[in-house]
Design a protein around this nucleic acid. Structure first.
Lengths: 358, 358
DNA sequence: GACTTTACGTCAGATAATTGACAACAATTG
DNA sequence: CAATTGTTGTCAATTATCTGACGTAAAGTC
């Protein structure tokens, strides 16, 4: 990852300070505390930090403290000696040791158990750790970076986070603002992601219609960049036309927008038909006229084989289905059913007879 | 297509969109999240997706995350090294490794433990996994498809499901509507299943009395397609007469329905149609088994009409597609192509000649 | 080189599908 | 009531489709 990937985080002016601080802090060994809502790209920022540090050639070891039960987390962080607890069949080094010389990234540190906080505090202060069930402690040379989406000051006030640890961690605070607070970034990022997925898929790059732009900017993005990236990927796959219109956006976004001004966005009819051909999917050569609104895909050989049928049986089965359906539609009137199917009535009768139908 | 038919499509938008999306998504490697009530046939949909993908010749590995205890699940998914835990007698590869090159289907992912969610997240993001008790991590090339009957957004809000994982999984959401929301489908499916069991049993096909039809349509089908299939099977075995009357239906259905005379009598006459018929689904923790029903892949009359084709032309078109595909697969070797299709070589040649193919 | 295997195309006889003609029946209409 | 319209089943003639047998050629094996 080079620094250009930081663009993924955004370009908004509120980030300018952030990046400047990052440049200054990276080469040092200071502890850093990253705050920001979920999905704002904290890990990305931290990775960038690591890569800009002197430790870039050493390990970068992320660990999500919020997701791991207390007992496991301790052994995960500090390792354990054989027999330390029931399932500790053998000695295992912890993440701190694995990160030796490099950086450890304690994500969601706000979730961490108070008891463990003490041990982390010790690791920061003394630069040494002790394995679970271990005897002595061992020195480690690890840079510590932590992140959380909680407001740690409040957690401290509420007694859920140790004040001393907070101050140790909060040497350099880096705050990643939420996407909704970075007006221009939404569009920049969207285009960035669209471009990225375009490259992956080989299809034409998607453009944003003016209405879609408005809607995207008006949305609050509770999932922040992650949600946006996710949407961009989806659009890259699902969008038919060359342009993303309101119709392509999820209702979640549209309903939040609710601006009458935006509603008249009706895609020009001509465009719709003109772009239909881009449709993917036809596994064959697509000689056959593409289905228009066809909510259906042609069965293929794999389908056939899945039923262990031969060509004939397969077509036969399909025919039977169609016969039934036609009869159903025609309420049992064979005359009409035959009409629907575009075959002679007598032919239909023969076919039915052959199958003992009706 | 005239406007009345458009209305009809409108009624069944859910499925129509679903299939359109499926068609588009299948050939990509995007992560897909299938939601839908239990019994709607999620597994079947996913199998279809796999068969439509580039990975169709590679493994399809389903695993029901809800059915396996947490500790076992991790080792099941990621494998374990010898001695990793008490019963880890020997090293074993996990499902991810077994699925190498193919697709892994994580059913009931909503039930998954938060800790495991992190590991899955890592698998998605980094495309690498680590065996239980293992040291290094290993790269895997696996497409991930997940399914759940929970509302994951709510689960996220409740803190029972990781937001980041949700966004990673939810790249392409596919929602299978409940059977009760697909009015026309109930009867079509019932007949489909009756037919299927009829063939199995060799007895005469059962017909549905008008009252029974009404009752079936009015019922809410909490167990969805699975419940319907069960009922059809039971009826096929237990019904004496040639026709299924109210008396044959379980009281569960009748009591919910009340007086059938009050029910509106709306046979889908010219009403075209549910584009979809869904087979069934779950086979437990899912040993790799051949797809069972797969009524899905079948086109129907509305499709046929959409192409303005008669039955014969329609089947012909389909046949031609299959011929082409088989030839393709056989690299032009007619002998093998015929083999694949389960027809005589000479027959194939005739068919090709008729169409001026090859 | 002799032998086996595999692939290919043709053709005539066997099989199956399709259709138009015919007759019967019911519902509707005048 | 009789005429009209629409539906249905049967059947034999026509057409199409499928198949097995035969002859050939190329590639692989011994």
């Amino acid at each position: 990852m080079d620094s250009s990937e930081l663009n993924i985080i955004g370009q908004h002016t509120s980030l300018a300070d952030l990046f400047r601080t990052l440049e200054k802090v990276a080469p040092t060994d200071s502890t850093v505390l990253v705050t920001g809502e979920s999905g704002t790209g904290k890990e990305l920022l931290v990775r960038a930090l690591h890569l800009k540090s002197k430790r870039k050639d050493k390990p970068f070891v992320p660990i999500n403290c919020g997701a791991i039960p207390r007992e496991l987390l301790e052994s995960e962080l500090f390792g354990h000696e054989k027999g330390a607890f029931t399932h500790a069949i053998r000695t295992r080094p912890g993440r701190f040791e694995l990160a030796e010389g490099g950086t450890i990234f304690l994500d969601e540190i706000g979730e961490m158990d108070l008891l463990l906080q003490v041990k982390i505090l010790r690791a920061i202060q003394e630069r040494e750790i002790e394995r679970v069930g271990g005897q002595g402690s061992r020195k480690v040379d690890v840079r510590i970076i932590a992140a959380t989406n909680r407001d740690l000051e409040k957690e401290v006030a509420a007694g859920r986070f140790r004040e001393d640890l907070f101050y140790r961690l909060n040497v350099i605070p880096l705050h990643l603002p939420a996407l909704r607070d970075r007006d221009g970034d939404v569009l920049t990022l969207t285009e960035h992601f669209l471009q990225k997925f375009y490259k992956k898929s080989g299809r034409h790059p998607l453009k944003l219609s003016p209405q879609a732009r408005k809607a995207l900017r008006a949305y609050t993005w509770p999932g922040n960049v992650r949600e946006l990236e996710n949407l961009a990927e989806r659009l890259s796959i699902l969008c038919d036309g060359p342009e993303i219109g309101l119709k392509d956006l999820p209702s979640k976004i549209l309903s939040q927008v609710g601006d009458t001004d935006l509603l008249p966005d009706v895609e020009p009819k001509a465009a719709a038909t003109a772009t239909a051909k881009i449709g993917i999917g036809n596994n064959g050569d697509g000689q056959v006229a593409p289905a228009r609104d066809g909510a259906w895909f042609w069965p293929d050989i794999s389908t056939m084989c899945a039923h262990s049928l031969g060509l004939k049986e397969f077509l036969d089965t399909l025919e039977e289905r169609l016969l039934r359906e036609a009869l159903d539609k025609a309420a049992g009137i064979k005359n009409q059913a035959a009409e629907i199917l575009g075959i002679k009535r007598t032919t239909l009768i023969e076919k039915l007879k052959k199958r003992n139908l009706e």
